[in-house]
Nucleic acid binder design. Sequence first.
DNA 1: TTCATTTCTTAAAGTAGTTTAAGTTTTTTA
DNA 2: TAAAAAACTTAAACTACTTTAAGAAATGAA
Lengths: 189, 189
Amino acid sequence: MDRLITHIRKTINLDDSEAAIVSSYFEYETVKKKKHLVEEGQTVHKQYYILKGCLRIYTLNTKGNEQTLQFGIENWWIADYLGFLGQTPSNYFIQAVENSEVISIDKNSLDELLSQLPKLEKYFRLTFQKSLGAAQMRIKYLFTMTAEESYHHFNKNFPEFVQRVPQYMLATYLDFTPEFMSKIRAGKA
Amino acid sequence: MDRLITHIRKTINLDDSEAAIVSSYFEYETVKKKKHLVEEGQTVHKQYYILKGCLRIYTLNTKGNEQTLQFGIENWWIADYLGFLGQTPSNYFIQAVENSEVISIDKNSLDELLSQLPKLEKYFRLTFQKSLGAAQMRIKYLFTMTAEESYHHFNKNFPEFVQRVPQYMLATYLDFTPEFMSKIRAGKA
DNA sequence: TTCATTTCTTAAAGTAGTTTAAGTTTTTTA
DNA sequence: TAAAAAACTTAAACTACTTTAAGAAATGAA
Protein backbone atom coordinates (compact mmCIF):
# COMPACT_ATOMS: atom_id res chain seq x y z
CA MET A 1 0.00 0.00 0.00
CA ASP A 2 2.99 2.27 0.51
CA ARG A 3 2.86 3.32 -3.12
CA LEU A 4 -0.53 4.96 -2.62
CA ILE A 5 0.55 6.70 0.58
CA THR A 6 3.63 8.04 -1.18
CA HIS A 7 1.44 9.21 -4.04
CA ILE A 8 -0.99 10.99 -1.72
CA ARG A 9 1.89 12.64 0.14
CA LYS A 10 2.97 14.34 -3.09
CA THR A 11 -0.23 16.39 -2.80
CA ILE A 12 -1.09 16.64 0.91
CA ASN A 13 0.54 15.92 4.28
CA LEU A 14 -0.35 12.67 6.01
CA ASP A 15 1.10 11.59 9.34
CA ASP A 16 1.64 7.90 10.02
CA SER A 17 -1.60 7.38 11.91
CA GLU A 18 -3.54 8.99 9.06
CA ALA A 19 -1.68 6.83 6.57
CA ALA A 20 -2.71 3.78 8.59
CA ILE A 21 -6.35 4.86 8.41
CA VAL A 22 -6.12 5.23 4.63
CA SER A 23 -4.52 1.80 4.27
CA SER A 24 -7.21 0.17 6.38
CA TYR A 25 -9.86 1.09 3.82
CA PHE A 26 -8.25 -0.57 0.83
CA GLU A 27 -8.20 -4.18 -0.30
CA TYR A 28 -5.30 -5.78 -2.11
CA GLU A 29 -6.04 -7.80 -5.26
CA THR A 30 -3.97 -9.46 -7.94
CA VAL A 31 -5.20 -9.91 -11.51
CA LYS A 32 -3.68 -12.28 -14.02
CA LYS A 33 -3.00 -11.08 -17.55
CA LYS A 34 -6.19 -11.13 -19.68
CA LYS A 35 -8.43 -11.45 -16.62
CA HIS A 36 -11.13 -8.88 -15.96
CA LEU A 37 -11.63 -6.78 -12.86
CA VAL A 38 -14.98 -5.60 -14.19
CA GLU A 39 -17.10 -6.70 -17.13
CA GLU A 40 -19.50 -4.51 -19.08
CA GLY A 41 -22.97 -4.75 -17.55
CA GLN A 42 -21.82 -5.78 -14.06
CA THR A 43 -22.54 -3.29 -11.31
CA VAL A 44 -19.54 -1.07 -10.65
CA HIS A 45 -18.49 -1.40 -7.04
CA LYS A 46 -14.93 -0.19 -6.92
CA GLN A 47 -12.28 2.23 -7.94
CA TYR A 48 -8.79 0.78 -8.47
CA TYR A 49 -5.31 2.10 -7.83
CA ILE A 50 -2.59 0.27 -9.73
CA LEU A 51 0.41 -0.83 -7.64
CA LYS A 52 2.10 -2.86 -10.33
CA GLY A 53 1.40 -3.86 -13.90
CA CYS A 54 -0.81 -2.50 -16.62
CA LEU A 55 -4.58 -2.49 -17.15
CA ARG A 56 -6.94 -1.14 -19.74
CA ILE A 57 -10.54 -0.04 -20.13
CA TYR A 58 -12.16 -1.24 -23.32
CA THR A 59 -15.54 -1.74 -24.91
CA LEU A 60 -16.89 -3.60 -27.92
CA ASN A 61 -18.19 -1.78 -30.97
CA THR A 62 -21.21 -2.93 -32.98
CA LYS A 63 -19.03 -5.30 -34.99
CA GLY A 64 -17.78 -6.92 -31.79
CA ASN A 65 -14.28 -5.47 -32.03
CA GLU A 66 -12.47 -4.26 -28.95
CA GLN A 67 -11.81 -0.53 -28.60
CA THR A 68 -9.37 0.47 -25.89
CA LEU A 69 -10.50 3.67 -24.23
CA GLN A 70 -7.76 4.02 -21.64
CA PHE A 71 -4.58 2.37 -20.39
CA GLY A 72 -3.37 2.60 -16.80
CA ILE A 73 -0.02 1.75 -15.25
CA GLU A 74 1.66 2.04 -11.83
CA ASN A 75 0.24 4.85 -9.67
CA TRP A 76 -2.78 5.53 -11.85
CA TRP A 77 -6.38 5.29 -10.82
CA ILE A 78 -8.67 3.29 -13.06
CA ALA A 79 -12.46 3.02 -12.95
CA ASP A 80 -15.75 3.62 -14.70
CA TYR A 81 -16.37 6.84 -12.79
CA LEU A 82 -19.98 7.33 -13.84
CA GLY A 83 -20.76 3.73 -12.93
CA PHE A 84 -18.92 4.08 -9.63
CA LEU A 85 -20.74 7.27 -8.62
CA GLY A 86 -24.15 5.91 -9.54
CA GLN A 87 -23.48 2.30 -8.52
CA THR A 88 -24.84 1.36 -11.92
CA PRO A 89 -23.85 -1.27 -14.51
CA SER A 90 -20.41 -0.81 -16.00
CA ASN A 91 -20.12 0.78 -19.40
CA TYR A 92 -16.77 -0.91 -19.96
CA PHE A 93 -14.54 -3.90 -19.39
CA ILE A 94 -11.51 -3.39 -17.16
CA GLN A 95 -8.84 -5.94 -17.97
CA ALA A 96 -5.24 -6.69 -16.98
CA VAL A 97 -2.79 -6.29 -19.86
CA GLU A 98 0.00 -7.76 -17.69
CA ASN A 99 -0.14 -9.69 -14.41
CA SER A 100 -0.97 -6.85 -12.07
CA GLU A 101 -1.46 -5.81 -8.47
CA VAL A 102 -4.11 -3.29 -7.51
CA ILE A 103 -5.78 -1.96 -4.41
CA SER A 104 -9.48 -1.21 -4.48
CA ILE A 105 -12.07 0.73 -2.56
CA ASP A 106 -15.85 0.62 -2.84
CA LYS A 107 -18.10 3.66 -2.77
CA ASN A 108 -19.33 3.34 0.81
CA SER A 109 -15.79 2.89 2.05
CA LEU A 110 -14.56 5.87 0.07
CA ASP A 111 -17.38 8.04 1.43
CA GLU A 112 -16.58 6.89 4.95
CA LEU A 113 -12.85 7.41 4.53
CA LEU A 114 -13.42 10.91 3.17
CA SER A 115 -15.67 11.91 6.05
CA GLN A 116 -13.18 10.51 8.53
CA LEU A 117 -10.25 12.21 6.79
CA PRO A 118 -11.63 15.22 4.91
CA LYS A 119 -8.17 16.41 3.94
CA LEU A 120 -8.17 13.59 1.36
CA GLU A 121 -10.84 15.45 -0.62
CA LYS A 122 -8.10 17.69 -1.94
CA TYR A 123 -6.03 14.75 -3.13
CA PHE A 124 -8.94 13.30 -5.07
CA ARG A 125 -10.06 16.69 -6.35
CA LEU A 126 -6.64 17.32 -7.86
CA THR A 127 -6.31 13.76 -9.13
CA PHE A 128 -9.63 13.94 -10.94
CA GLN A 129 -8.96 17.44 -12.23
CA LYS A 130 -5.69 16.20 -13.76
CA SER A 131 -7.38 13.13 -15.24
CA LEU A 132 -10.08 15.36 -16.69
CA GLY A 133 -7.42 17.50 -18.32
CA ALA A 134 -5.83 14.36 -19.74
CA ALA A 135 -9.19 13.20 -21.09
CA GLN A 136 -9.64 16.56 -22.82
CA MET A 137 -6.27 16.13 -24.51
CA ARG A 138 -7.13 12.56 -25.50
CA ILE A 139 -10.28 13.81 -27.25
CA LYS A 140 -8.29 16.55 -28.97
CA TYR A 141 -5.79 14.03 -30.30
CA LEU A 142 -8.51 11.67 -31.51
CA PHE A 143 -9.99 14.56 -33.46
CA THR A 144 -6.95 16.22 -34.91
CA MET A 145 -4.52 13.46 -35.88
CA THR A 146 -4.49 11.00 -38.74
CA ALA A 147 -3.75 7.35 -37.98
CA GLU A 148 -0.12 7.76 -38.94
CA GLU A 149 0.33 10.93 -36.88
CA SER A 150 -1.25 9.26 -33.84
CA TYR A 151 1.09 6.33 -34.14
CA HIS A 152 4.23 8.46 -34.36
CA HIS A 153 3.03 10.80 -31.63
CA PHE A 154 2.42 7.93 -29.26
CA ASN A 155 5.74 6.27 -30.02
CA LYS A 156 7.60 9.51 -29.47
CA ASN A 157 5.85 10.46 -26.24
CA PHE A 158 5.38 7.07 -24.59
CA PRO A 159 8.16 4.82 -25.90
CA GLU A 160 8.38 2.73 -22.68
CA PHE A 161 4.68 2.16 -22.92
CA VAL A 162 4.80 0.89 -26.49
CA GLN A 163 7.07 -1.91 -25.27
CA ARG A 164 4.49 -3.08 -22.75
CA VAL A 165 1.34 -3.47 -24.81
CA PRO A 166 0.69 -5.62 -27.89
CA GLN A 167 0.61 -3.66 -31.12
CA TYR A 168 -2.94 -4.72 -31.92
CA MET A 169 -4.12 -3.34 -28.59
CA LEU A 170 -2.36 -0.04 -29.20
CA ALA A 171 -4.10 0.10 -32.58
CA THR A 172 -7.50 -0.17 -30.89
CA TYR A 173 -6.47 2.68 -28.58
CA LEU A 174 -5.38 4.95 -31.42
CA ASP A 175 -8.57 4.18 -33.35
CA PHE A 176 -7.46 2.13 -36.32
CA THR A 177 -7.11 -1.56 -37.17
CA PRO A 178 -4.13 -3.80 -36.36
CA GLU A 179 -3.81 -4.45 -40.11
CA PHE A 180 -3.47 -0.77 -40.81
CA MET A 181 -0.87 -0.48 -38.07
CA SER A 182 1.22 -3.11 -39.83
CA LYS A 183 1.01 -0.97 -42.93
CA ILE A 184 2.17 2.10 -41.03
CA ARG A 185 5.04 0.20 -39.45
CA ALA A 186 6.11 -1.11 -42.83
CA GLY A 187 6.07 2.46 -44.11
CA LYS A 188 3.41 1.68 -46.70
CA ALA A 189 0.51 3.68 -45.28
CA MET B 1 -24.02 34.33 -8.63
CA ASP B 2 -26.98 32.65 -6.95
CA ARG B 3 -26.98 29.95 -9.58
CA LEU B 4 -23.57 28.74 -8.46
CA ILE B 5 -24.52 28.81 -4.78
CA THR B 6 -27.64 26.81 -5.54
CA HIS B 7 -25.55 24.36 -7.51
CA ILE B 8 -23.01 23.94 -4.71
CA ARG B 9 -25.80 23.44 -2.17
CA LYS B 10 -26.97 20.39 -4.10
CA THR B 11 -23.76 18.73 -2.94
CA ILE B 12 -22.77 20.34 0.37
CA ASN B 13 -24.27 22.66 2.99
CA LEU B 14 -23.34 26.32 2.85
CA ASP B 15 -24.68 28.93 5.27
CA ASP B 16 -25.24 32.47 4.04
CA SER B 17 -21.92 33.82 5.30
CA GLU B 18 -20.08 31.00 3.56
CA ALA B 19 -22.05 31.66 0.39
CA ALA B 20 -20.98 35.30 0.59
CA ILE B 21 -17.34 34.24 0.84
CA VAL B 22 -17.70 32.04 -2.24
CA SER B 23 -19.36 34.85 -4.20
CA SER B 24 -16.62 37.29 -3.29
CA TYR B 25 -14.04 35.20 -5.14
CA PHE B 26 -15.78 35.18 -8.51
CA GLU B 27 -15.91 37.74 -11.26
CA TYR B 28 -18.88 38.26 -13.54
CA GLU B 29 -18.30 38.46 -17.28
CA THR B 30 -20.48 38.59 -20.36
CA VAL B 31 -19.39 37.20 -23.73
CA LYS B 32 -21.03 38.04 -27.03
CA LYS B 33 -21.83 35.25 -29.47
CA LYS B 34 -18.73 34.22 -31.45
CA LYS B 35 -16.37 35.98 -29.04
CA HIS B 36 -13.63 34.03 -27.30
CA LEU B 37 -12.98 33.75 -23.59
CA VAL B 38 -9.68 32.04 -24.29
CA GLU B 39 -7.68 31.52 -27.45
CA GLU B 40 -5.34 28.63 -28.16
CA GLY B 41 -1.81 29.56 -27.08
CA GLN B 42 -2.84 32.20 -24.52
CA THR B 43 -2.00 31.39 -20.91
CA VAL B 44 -4.95 29.82 -19.14
CA HIS B 45 -5.85 31.90 -16.13
CA LYS B 46 -9.41 30.94 -15.30
CA GLN B 47 -12.05 28.35 -14.86
CA TYR B 48 -15.57 29.39 -15.91
CA TYR B 49 -19.02 28.60 -14.58
CA ILE B 50 -21.84 29.26 -17.04
CA LEU B 51 -24.75 31.29 -15.65
CA LYS B 52 -26.56 31.73 -18.94
CA GLY B 53 -26.00 30.83 -22.56
CA CYS B 54 -23.88 28.27 -24.33
CA LEU B 55 -20.15 27.97 -24.92
CA ARG B 56 -17.87 25.47 -26.58
CA ILE B 57 -14.27 24.31 -26.51
CA TYR B 58 -12.78 23.76 -29.94
CA THR B 59 -9.47 23.36 -31.69
CA LEU B 60 -8.25 23.48 -35.27
CA ASN B 61 -7.04 20.37 -37.07
CA THR B 62 -4.11 20.37 -39.50
CA LYS B 63 -6.40 21.43 -42.33
CA GLY B 64 -7.55 24.44 -40.32
CA ASN B 65 -11.04 23.07 -39.67
CA GLU B 66 -12.73 23.57 -36.31
CA GLN B 67 -13.32 20.52 -34.14
CA THR B 68 -15.66 21.02 -31.21
CA LEU B 69 -14.43 19.04 -28.23
CA GLN B 70 -17.06 20.06 -25.71
CA PHE B 71 -20.22 22.13 -25.32
CA GLY B 72 -21.28 23.73 -22.06
CA ILE B 73 -24.59 25.28 -20.99
CA GLU B 74 -26.13 26.73 -17.82
CA ASN B 75 -24.62 25.34 -14.60
CA TRP B 76 -21.67 23.64 -16.28
CA TRP B 77 -18.03 24.34 -15.63
CA ILE B 78 -15.85 24.93 -18.67
CA ALA B 79 -12.05 25.20 -18.84
CA ASP B 80 -8.83 23.78 -20.17
CA TYR B 81 -8.10 21.91 -16.96
CA LEU B 82 -4.53 20.94 -17.76
CA GLY B 83 -3.75 24.51 -18.79
CA PHE B 84 -5.46 25.85 -15.67
CA LEU B 85 -3.58 23.56 -13.29
CA GLY B 86 -0.22 24.26 -14.91
CA GLN B 87 -0.90 27.90 -15.76
CA THR B 88 0.32 27.03 -19.24
CA PRO B 89 -0.78 28.04 -22.73
CA SER B 90 -4.27 26.94 -23.68
CA ASN B 91 -4.67 23.87 -25.84
CA TYR B 92 -8.07 25.09 -27.03
CA PHE B 93 -10.30 27.98 -27.95
CA ILE B 94 -13.23 28.67 -25.64
CA GLN B 95 -15.96 30.51 -27.51
CA ALA B 96 -19.52 31.70 -26.89
CA VAL B 97 -22.08 29.94 -29.09
CA GLU B 98 -24.79 32.33 -27.82
CA ASN B 99 -24.54 35.63 -25.95
CA SER B 100 -23.60 34.30 -22.55
CA GLU B 101 -22.96 35.20 -18.91
CA VAL B 102 -20.25 33.45 -16.94
CA ILE B 103 -18.46 33.80 -13.65
CA SER B 104 -14.76 33.09 -13.47
CA ILE B 105 -12.08 32.33 -10.93
CA ASP B 106 -8.32 32.26 -11.37
CA LYS B 107 -6.03 29.62 -9.90
CA ASN B 108 -4.68 31.67 -6.98
CA SER B 109 -8.18 32.70 -6.01
CA LEU B 110 -9.45 29.15 -6.20
CA ASP B 111 -6.56 27.91 -4.05
CA GLU B 112 -7.23 30.66 -1.53
CA LEU B 113 -10.97 30.03 -1.50
CA LEU B 114 -10.42 26.32 -0.96
CA SER B 115 -8.05 26.86 1.93
CA GLN B 116 -10.46 29.33 3.50
CA LEU B 117 -13.44 27.02 2.95
CA PRO B 118 -12.10 23.44 2.76
CA LYS B 119 -15.56 21.96 2.62
CA LEU B 120 -15.71 23.14 -1.00
CA GLU B 121 -13.09 20.54 -1.91
CA LYS B 122 -15.85 17.94 -1.85
CA TYR B 123 -18.00 19.93 -4.27
CA PHE B 124 -15.17 20.21 -6.77
CA ARG B 125 -14.05 16.62 -6.25
CA LEU B 126 -17.53 15.36 -7.13
CA THR B 127 -17.94 17.83 -9.98
CA PHE B 128 -14.68 16.73 -11.57
CA GLN B 129 -15.37 13.06 -10.94
CA LYS B 130 -18.71 13.41 -12.75
CA SER B 131 -17.09 15.32 -15.62
CA LEU B 132 -14.44 12.65 -15.87
CA GLY B 133 -17.14 10.00 -16.13
CA ALA B 134 -18.82 12.04 -18.86
CA ALA B 135 -15.50 12.36 -20.73
CA GLN B 136 -15.09 8.56 -20.59
CA MET B 137 -18.52 8.14 -22.14
CA ARG B 138 -17.74 10.73 -24.80
CA ILE B 139 -14.65 8.75 -25.82
CA LYS B 140 -16.68 5.54 -25.87
CA TYR B 141 -19.25 7.09 -28.19
CA LEU B 142 -16.61 8.53 -30.51
CA PHE B 143 -15.18 5.03 -30.83
CA THR B 144 -18.24 2.88 -31.16
CA MET B 145 -20.74 4.82 -33.25
CA THR B 146 -20.91 5.52 -36.96
CA ALA B 147 -21.67 9.07 -38.08
CA GLU B 148 -25.32 8.26 -38.56
CA GLU B 149 -25.66 6.55 -35.18
CA SER B 150 -23.98 9.50 -33.43
CA TYR B 151 -26.38 11.92 -35.06
CA HIS B 152 -29.49 10.00 -34.06
CA HIS B 153 -28.16 9.30 -30.58
CA PHE B 154 -27.49 12.97 -29.97
CA ASN B 155 -30.85 14.07 -31.33
CA LYS B 156 -32.65 11.56 -29.18
CA ASN B 157 -30.76 12.32 -25.96
CA PHE B 158 -30.28 16.08 -26.24
CA PRO B 159 -33.13 17.41 -28.39
CA GLU B 160 -33.25 20.83 -26.64
CA PHE B 161 -29.57 21.17 -27.27
CA VAL B 162 -29.83 20.50 -30.99
CA GLN B 163 -32.09 23.55 -31.25
CA ARG B 164 -29.44 25.79 -29.74
CA VAL B 165 -26.37 25.08 -31.85
CA PRO B 166 -25.86 25.39 -35.62
CA GLN B 167 -25.88 22.07 -37.42
CA TYR B 168 -22.39 22.56 -38.78
CA MET B 169 -21.06 23.02 -35.25
CA LEU B 170 -22.79 19.86 -34.06
CA ALA B 171 -21.18 18.04 -36.99
CA THR B 172 -17.73 19.11 -35.80
CA TYR B 173 -18.63 17.78 -32.33
CA LEU B 174 -19.80 14.41 -33.63
CA ASP B 175 -16.70 14.09 -35.83
CA PHE B 176 -17.96 14.38 -39.37
CA THR B 177 -18.38 17.17 -41.92
CA PRO B 178 -21.36 19.54 -42.22
CA GLU B 179 -21.84 18.23 -45.78
CA PHE B 180 -22.16 14.68 -44.53
CA MET B 181 -24.65 15.83 -41.91
CA SER B 182 -26.84 17.25 -44.67
CA LYS B 183 -26.72 13.85 -46.30
CA ILE B 184 -27.76 12.13 -43.07
CA ARG B 185 -30.60 14.60 -42.54
CA ALA B 186 -31.82 14.06 -46.08
CA GLY B 187 -31.79 10.33 -45.39
CA LYS B 188 -29.26 9.67 -48.15
CA ALA B 189 -26.27 8.66 -46.05
C1' DT C 1 -36.33 46.22 -46.06
C1' DT C 2 -32.33 45.52 -48.33
C1' DC C 3 -27.61 43.86 -48.43
C1' DA C 4 -24.17 41.04 -46.27
C1' DT C 5 -23.14 37.29 -43.69
C1' DT C 6 -23.91 32.90 -41.96
C1' DT C 7 -25.82 28.47 -42.43
C1' DC C 8 -27.42 24.61 -45.07
C1' DT C 9 -27.77 21.63 -49.24
C1' DT C 10 -26.53 18.86 -53.37
C1' DA C 11 -23.73 15.99 -56.06
C1' DA C 12 -19.59 14.09 -58.25
C1' DA C 13 -14.91 12.67 -57.56
C1' DG C 14 -11.52 11.18 -54.37
C1' DT C 15 -9.25 8.82 -50.27
C1' DA C 16 -7.95 7.25 -45.63
C1' DG C 17 -9.09 3.82 -43.66
C1' DT C 18 -11.59 -1.19 -43.19
C1' DT C 19 -12.55 -5.91 -44.40
C1' DT C 20 -11.45 -10.38 -45.60
C1' DA C 21 -8.57 -14.08 -45.89
C1' DA C 22 -4.45 -16.37 -45.67
C1' DG C 23 0.08 -17.08 -44.08
C1' DT C 24 4.15 -16.18 -40.78
C1' DT C 25 6.26 -15.32 -36.49
C1' DT C 26 6.41 -15.10 -31.57
C1' DT C 27 4.97 -16.37 -27.04
C1' DT C 28 2.84 -19.38 -23.76
C1' DT C 29 1.76 -23.62 -21.73
C1' DA C 30 1.72 -28.53 -20.74
C1' DT D 1 10.42 -29.02 -26.26
C1' DA D 2 6.39 -29.69 -28.85
C1' DA D 3 2.02 -28.08 -29.67
C1' DA D 4 -1.30 -24.55 -29.12
C1' DA D 5 -2.45 -19.97 -28.75
C1' DA D 6 -1.56 -15.21 -29.44
C1' DA D 7 0.35 -11.61 -32.19
C1' DC D 8 1.82 -9.73 -36.50
C1' DT D 9 1.99 -9.19 -41.69
C1' DT D 10 0.50 -8.85 -46.57
C1' DA D 11 -2.39 -7.58 -50.24
C1' DA D 12 -6.58 -6.99 -52.95
C1' DA D 13 -11.29 -5.47 -52.82
C1' DC D 14 -14.29 -2.38 -50.62
C1' DT D 15 -16.72 1.62 -48.17
C1' DA D 16 -17.83 5.36 -45.01
C1' DC D 17 -16.67 9.42 -45.14
C1' DT D 18 -14.18 13.86 -47.13
C1' DT D 19 -13.26 17.24 -50.56
C1' DT D 20 -14.49 20.53 -53.81
C1' DA D 21 -17.49 23.60 -55.79
C1' DA D 22 -21.60 25.83 -56.44
C1' DG D 23 -26.04 27.46 -55.26
C1' DA D 24 -30.10 28.23 -52.04
C1' DA D 25 -32.09 29.55 -47.76
C1' DA D 26 -32.11 31.77 -43.45
C1' DT D 27 -30.51 35.19 -40.25
C1' DG D 28 -28.66 39.61 -38.79
C1' DA D 29 -27.35 44.43 -39.19
C1' DA D 30 -27.81 49.20 -40.94
